[in-house]
Design a protein around this nucleic acid. Structure first.
Lengths: 259, 259
DNA sequence: CGCCATTCTTGACTTCGGTCATGTGGGTGG
DNA sequence: CCACCCACATGACCGAAGTCAAGAATGGCG
């Protein structure tokens, strides 16, 4: 648990008071802004946004803290306002599989919460973070008045489906190094040329997210040197984005067979 | 394409007539029954079911026929009434990754259709099959009257999310043979003891579905002999379901490390 | 400043799974 | 009925990735 908890204290108060509307807190305002920009809230009909935000719970989590566990019943939708949250699943064998990692502006748990179903995954803060929880009943009651809301929730859910499908494709059709390359590409927004990026979280988690062991990630990084990638600490330099994309999209067989 | 297309002809007629309500066709009635029992339709409010079914399109597909392609815009939700349909994705490298395989009573495309978004995957019939298409606008207009419908669509979408999450977990945390073991377990409904199952589709597709090459599937099967599995043609005998589950859930490291 | 825990890297070794080549059996079409 | 084509199995080979172990680099904390 985090020890320097001045901030945590403030927010804990806020948590207990469930109508935080006029707390004159700059960080809270900043978080509200992030919330408004999140995919989920952004796609809600404008007239309901204020209502939803004012009925939400705002909480801080320390690194390593659990938001919820697999099999627990869902009663809220979660929107990350700051920091990183991982969704993972523990297989019967005890191995942990990271399903996704969310950050500022991203939401999860939409489909489960509206049905009071058990979560299929567990959620844990991997850095100190701020999370907004929207109680499911708030959304459900709104939804009965305005069906449009159902559509926006479906939009968010679809983007998760899409993300999972991409991940499946990558796992089934790409090597580890290629997945790492794609991961790096998602971090740099430029289209071409060189680029420097900061790795958003530690390498153990990156490895998990990409479906490999930390040792394999290290090796994948060194393999990417030939593609113009240099990594030190949590900092990566990409010499040529196009070249890296080329690497990621080259069929494994081609590389030595036709090369 | 299928050459014996008497049946296909009949259904093609039905397809062109968009109000097939009183066609006295036994197979059509049988399909309607399947449709009613599908997860999607089953969770719709009773009073809308008839309306939805009567506005649906009913079509036959031959083995190998394409229902839709990745990137196409979605305008309908699909419910499989008979046969098998695979959803797959072609990666930039050209490799095909099977995302899921659906059969009788299962639906897909819910979230995409309601937004007119492009499909993230392609769909192909892997056996002759019957599919019901529910035009998205039918559901959308109903949804505006009764928000309950949004919830039931979310239910179907959630079960897909859940399926993808399980698949991810399996790919990240299990060996090929273990995935095959789990696959076999899903085919037998018994809890314990022995069991015989028929493989639902050809081994190439099973291999794809489980994220491996046909050769690896063969080897996985022979590896499972030690766990009491015997396979010949499309028929598999499982000596002891419990033992097989045990095999599937044993950590890879354990097997030789502590064994 | 120095200790300690953790993360990260590297190396040796093993296993898993993909690739290629070959052989076999079953089914379809001529 | 035979030829041909697939799906499928098997073996040889190899690269990719996991396991184990040891050491280097970091970062927090006393």
């Amino acid at each position: 648990m985090r020890l320097t908890n001045q901030a945590t204290g403030v927010i804990a108060q806020r948590l207990s008071a469930s109508a935080p509307a006029k707390v004159p807190d700059v960080t809270h305002d900043a978080h509200k802004l992030v919330a408004r920009k999140s995919l989920l809230v952004r796609s809600l009909p404008e007239q309901h946004v204020e209502h939803v935000l004012s009925h939400a719970l705002w909480r801080s989590y320390d690194r390593g803290e659990t938001l919820f566990l697999q099999e627990e019943n869902a009663h809220a939708i979660h929107v990350v306002l700051d920091g990183w949250v991982k969704l993972y699943r523990v297989s019967p064998t005890g191995a942990e599989a990271v399903v996704s990692v969310f950050t500022k502006g991203e939401s999860f748990g939409e489909a489960v919460a509206l049905h009071n179903l058990p979560y299929p995954v567990s959620a844990e803060a991997v850095s100190p973070c701020e999370v907004m929880h929207i109680p499911a009943n708030v959304l459900i009651s709104l939804m009965r008045k305005d069906p449009e809301i159902g559509i926006s929730i479906l939009a968010a859910t679809f983007s998760h489906l899409h993300g999972l499908v991409s991940q499946l494709e990558q796992l089934k059709a790409q090597t580890g190094a290629q997945r790492v390359a794609e991961f790096l590409l998602t971090l740099c927004q430029g289209e071409a040329g060189g680029c420097e990026v900061t790795l958003p979280y530690d390498k153990m988690l990156i490895a998990g997210r990409l479906g490999m062991k930390p040792e394999s990630l290290s090796r994948a990084f060194s393999r990417l040197k030939t593609a113009g990638v240099r990594v030190s600490r949590n900092h990566a330099e990409i010499a040529d984005i196009e070249a890296l994309r080329e690497y990621a999209e080259t069929d494994r067989a081609d590389s030595w067979h036709k090369g």
